[in-house]
Amino acid sequence: MLMTITDRSPIALKEWEMGTQAPPSTIANPPAGNANRLGFYISILTAMIAVITLGIAVFTPPISGSYCRKDCIDYPYLDIVSRFPRDYIWMYSAIVLTLLFVALMVCIHEYAPAEKRIFSHIGLAFAIISAVLLVGDYFVQVSVIQPSLENGETDGIALLTQYNPHGLFIALEDIGYLMMSAALLCAVPVFSRTNRVEKAIRWIFIGNFILAIIALVALSIQYGVDRGYRFEVLVLSLDWIVLFVTGILLSTVFRRAMSVATHPATTGS
């Protein structure tokens, strides 16, 4: 007689800890198998869009603030109509990446074993906060700033525009990407198996958050409230690189879980 291993089986729990089995909650569970399949594709898409977004941003040099080297735009930042759309293209990609990040966190939550879901749930909450801040921030730039300038409506532009290193755009990016780092940190307990892939994911998520906090504290000490773009550039670069690298690693995790869920293990009795 064959007995399917369930999520209560000590054998399933042991194999999951050793990295040779899918999370106990996914075995003989078709909905979980679908989540793993979606997680696999979302991971790959996230890695692809992350590297594309980073590449576009690298080739969009700043024209204001501390990183501008020539032909800089100064307050009140009204001479920027000609900069559209080239200075805004990366934002469209960043919006897609941010939405994929939320979808990825949902898949990680579905992958998590029951006793670790509280952590992934908290991470998902941080991810949603991050997405609301960042998507709203970018959408305002591409849908409000440019048409306002073209119609001569300049009131409030200096506070909202991306070219103001002390403006609302940079502040929302700072907190948005810090929330993204916090979301990834909360996902660390989910990847508690001993195989190299999950170990790497854990340390990358932890290291990313630690570096972000160190950067924030160090730049705040050195520059005070006049951080400008410095923290924003650093924290978004860290998050994008992490999403690229761990997107590849997570695709491996989901592929393994998907394979095991498709062919559930059995034991004789």
Rank of each mutant, 00 (worst) to 15 (best):
F191G: 05
S130W: 09
A94T: 04
K116F: 04
E153K: 14
H263W: 15
K14H: 15
R37W: 15
K116I: 02
S143K: 07
N208A: 13
M3K: 06
L216V: 09
S148P: 07
L234M: 14
L172M: 06
R69K: 14
E15Q: 12
A131F: 09
K199S: 14
F231T: 01
A103I: 04
W16F: 09
I52E: 00
G228V: 04
V140G: 03
V253P: 07
V242M: 02
G224D: 02
D87T: 03
T6M: 00
Y41E: 14
I221Q: 02
M179C: 10
F59Q: 13
G176H: 03
R86C: 05
R117L: 05
T154P: 15
D7M: 01
G33M: 07
P264I: 00
G207C: 13
V140I: 08
N34Q: 14
I56M: 06
D137G: 00
I175D: 05
I201N: 01
Y223H: 06
W203A: 09
V260F: 10
V132Y: 04
L172G: 01
V260Y: 05
T6F: 00
N208Q: 15
S64H: 06
L211T: 08
P10E: 00
H263G: 07
W203C: 09
I27W: 00
L45D: 03
H263E: 13
I214R: 01
Q21K: 08
P189F: 10
M91R: 07
